[in-house]
Design a binder for these strands. Sequence first.
DNA 1: CGGGTGCTTGATCTCTATCAACTGGTGTGG
DNA 2: CCACACCAGTTGATAGAGATCAAGCACCCG
Lengths: 251, 251
Amino acid sequence: MEHAVKPPPTNPLALYLAKLERRSPLSEESREALLGLPSRLRPLEAYRDIIREGDRPAHCCLVVNGLVSRYKTLRNGSRQILSFHFAGDMVDLQGALVVIADHGVRAHIPSEIALIEHAEILELAARLPEVGRALWFDTLIDAAVFREWMVNVGRRTALQRTAHLLLELHYRMSEIGATDGDSFSLPVSQADLSDALGISPVHLNRTLQWLRAERLIRSISRTVIIEDPVRLTEIAGFQPNYLHPEGPRAP
Amino acid sequence: MEHAVKPPPTNPLALYLAKLERRSPLSEESREALLGLPSRLRPLEAYRDIIREGDRPAHCCLVVNGLVSRYKTLRNGSRQILSFHFAGDMVDLQGALVVIADHGVRAHIPSEIALIEHAEILELAARLPEVGRALWFDTLIDAAVFREWMVNVGRRTALQRTAHLLLELHYRMSEIGATDGDSFSLPVSQADLSDALGISPVHLNRTLQWLRAERLIRSISRTVIIEDPVRLTEIAGFQPNYLHPEGPRAP
DNA sequence: CGGGTGCTTGATCTCTATCAACTGGTGTGG
DNA sequence: CCACACCAGTTGATAGAGATCAAGCACCCG
């Protein structure tokens, strides 16, 4: 018999603080200020937009659990997913300064996010330059990932980009301890994945089958297992330097 | 007979200040501090890298005149241009915090850039939160353009993306007064343009010819004239909202 | 004048999109 | 427990966009 164990009511901001401090340590004052940010927990059902293009959101959303993505839609209905975010990621931090959203944000599975008011974040960034730097750096890594994705869709074959995305997600998830060795959960439909890769769902399907046939990956339900990391990395040309694990410049 | 008129030796930082203030005004103190940043003018010959992937640059480069781009190269030699920059653009502002460059920077024509030390910029951002905000916002617009380019290469046809790029460049150049009505100078080879668009040079060539045949654009030497802005905009689905002309959130 | 560079054109081929049908799993309601 | 609907994934056939290869042309500059 199983007990319904509720997770301890930790401060969601602790997740984000941990992410920032994985890159570079913060002073006690900054730490406390970040943890003191008022936040409001909110459940988010799958495929329900939390932000739509054109909105003027008043909050940043910190992913507490689940899987969230940002995307743009064209008039003909086709969609490009711009990024994936999971626990500890601050989605739409840019909204603190950029008033009108130029893309949408939604979850792929039932998720939980913590809402933090832009004004609070801005005030904090202005008061504690150290925090301002950390947030700025966070958005710079965001941009670095965009650049790599641009190379992905612009210059890599379907096979290479699929392999590259899987490796990036595995790498980023391993940073937050969301992987189990070479396997990780990726609860995203092939249709959505193809929107992130800039290919058709059908072609992604064939590409995945090829990867499986070559014993480079396996997947049961929506768990991906990287069977041959070396060869997959070779195919993808994956180098995690763009994620800048070295952290920001020391003050 | 023509006089060789040398431009007055203005402070390069004034170019950047103007760009920032086009978005939102700064206090007198911030203005003076920005103009007081020590900078070193440097000529840059075409196709000579100012930053290469893996470098640890000590300076940001402010474009004074010319045309500069950022790019990534894959092992197979193919290249993706990530952005174009012209007078007043601060290239690699992100380098202030991101230590190791994850992409290269070079000029397409002989250009002039002003070098500003990262440390100086960081110190200023920490001392004057208003400046910190303005710089942060600048990098956020950078990221917004990356996202739009991702949509371009991921989800638009060769025709649409070519039209979109031309319209974006025209729009951005008009902001700095570098356009002459519907025409502007674009001293970029078709090979380089195709690297920005994620298509082959040959296919870009045909696409341009189609645009010319349909009387949507004209081009003499390396000046582009947008003949039919309305229809071109329609084809591209161009909406400049992602450039955020509305500026940052008011303090 | 020669040679480089960049643009243009044609032919061919390959990758990827599109369309359509079928399978298998899951959930729901009778 | 079955019938049904629904959705994600799979498969095949076909079309089209764009890549690649190769050659010719125009212009510039020393």
